[in-house]
Each structure stands twice: as C-alpha cells, then as structure tokens.
Simulated assay, not measured.
Amino acid sequence: MDFTHDTRLSLQALTALVNTRHPDTLTTVADLDDLCDRWRWSGGRNHDEAELQAVRDVRDRLAGFWGADEQTVVNLINALLFEGNALPQLVRHDGFDWHIHATRADDPLVVRMVVEYAMSMMDVVRAGDLDRLSYCAADDCDQVVLDLSRNRSRKFCDSGCGNRSNVAAYRARRKRAD
C-alpha cells in the first residue's frame, strides 16, 4: 500500500517517538522541542515539564501497536480516538496540502499526537499492513521498525544496526576465509 504523505509522516513520527524509550532520549523540554520540530507538529505548545511528562507517559502505550494482533491494534486505535474526542476534518497549513486533523490546534500536544498516530494506524489496519511494524533484527537492539519499503525488506532500525550487522558479517566472512 502506498500511504498518503500525511500518513507516512505520522507513522514515521510515531516510530521515532516510540524509539525514544530505549535508550531514553526524550528527557528534556528541549528534546521534545527537537522532536516536534523534526516532525513538524503544528498547533499550540506549552514548552513545559508537564507537557514533556505527558508525551513520555504515552510512549509505552503507543508501542503497543508493534507486535500486537489486529484486534488489539483496533481496540487501541478506537480507545485513543475516543479519549482524544477525535473529530476528523480536512485542513491545509504550513505548506502541506489537504490532510486530516482530528483535534483542535489548541488541544494539548499529547492529545494531538495520540489522535494523529491513531488515525495513521487506521490506514495501516485498513490496508492489512500490520506486518510493516516490526522490531529491529539486531540481537542487541529493541527499537521498533516501520517498513515503508516497496518490497517490505526493512529489517533494522535507524540507529545504525544494519551497518553494524553488515560489518560484523563481513568480518566473520573474512575471518573464515583467512
């Protein structure tokens, strides 16, 4: 399935947020600011410790999308949408063409994030693409992976695990050859 731009961006942002858990790289308001800037979050922000803690607190719940069966994912999506009082609407802003928002711009950041991620996961479920969510294949890594490749071949996270694995395999082949 070829997801829309906003769904792809949301899924990538969701993956990035979940991967801030191990190691914990979301420890300061500045870290949250950087995350929001990187993924171009629109709407109001408090830029305070309470906002940071609310986003930190939701990470484990959002990680529940990975490794879960379809019904569990659907239940989580529906719960997040219900809790966020989702009301889908089409909007254009900040250079993005028409896309869906399901919260008000002045809702708390964590509510906007959770609802946005739930909306993007709806597209994943509807497309039958839950297999695009996996865990890094590196033995020493517990990061989550979002595979948006055409041939569904992505096995490693963005933390350099693929390169480390390839280098280790190369060295092992060289050692056997010697």
Results as ranks from 00 to 15, higher is better:
Ser10Asn: 01
Ala13Gly: 13
Ala13Glu: 01
Thr15Pro: 08
Ala16Val: 05
Val18Gly: 07
Arg21Glu: 05
His22Ala: 04
Asp24Arg: 13
Thr25Pro: 01
Thr27Arg: 15
Thr28His: 03
Val29Asp: 07
Ala30Met: 03
Asp33Trp: 02
Cys36Asp: 03
Asp37Leu: 15
Arg38Cys: 07
Trp39Gly: 03
Arg40Pro: 00
Arg40Ser: 13
Trp41Thr: 11
Ser42His: 05
Arg45Lys: 15
Asn46Val: 06
Asp48Arg: 02
Asp48Met: 07
Ala50Gly: 06
Glu51Lys: 05
Glu51Asn: 08
Gln53Lys: 11
Ala54Met: 04
Ala54Leu: 03
Ala54Asn: 05
Val55His: 06
Val55Ser: 09
Asp57Gly: 14
Val58Asn: 03
Val58Gln: 10
Leu62Arg: 14
Leu62Gly: 11
Ala63Phe: 11
Ala63Cys: 11
Gly67Glu: 07
Asp69Leu: 12
Asp69Val: 11
Glu70Leu: 07
Glu70Thr: 14
Gln71Lys: 15
Val74Lys: 15
Val74Tyr: 07
Leu76Glu: 00
Leu76Lys: 06
Ile77Leu: 06
Gly84Gln: 07
Ala86Ile: 00
Leu87Pro: 00
Gln89Leu: 09
Gln89Cys: 07
Gln89Thr: 08
Leu90Phe: 12
Leu90Ala: 12
Arg92Phe: 05
Phe96Tyr: 11
Trp98Gly: 00
Trp98Leu: 09
His99Arg: 15
His99Met: 13
Ile100Tyr: 09
Ile100Ala: 12
Thr103Phe: 12
Thr103Asp: 06
Arg104Val: 03
Arg104Pro: 01
Ala105Tyr: 13
Asp107Phe: 11
Leu109Asp: 06
Val110Gly: 09
Arg112Tyr: 04
Arg112Val: 04
Met113Ile: 14
Met113Asp: 01
Ala118Met: 11
Ala118Asn: 09
Ala118Cys: 11
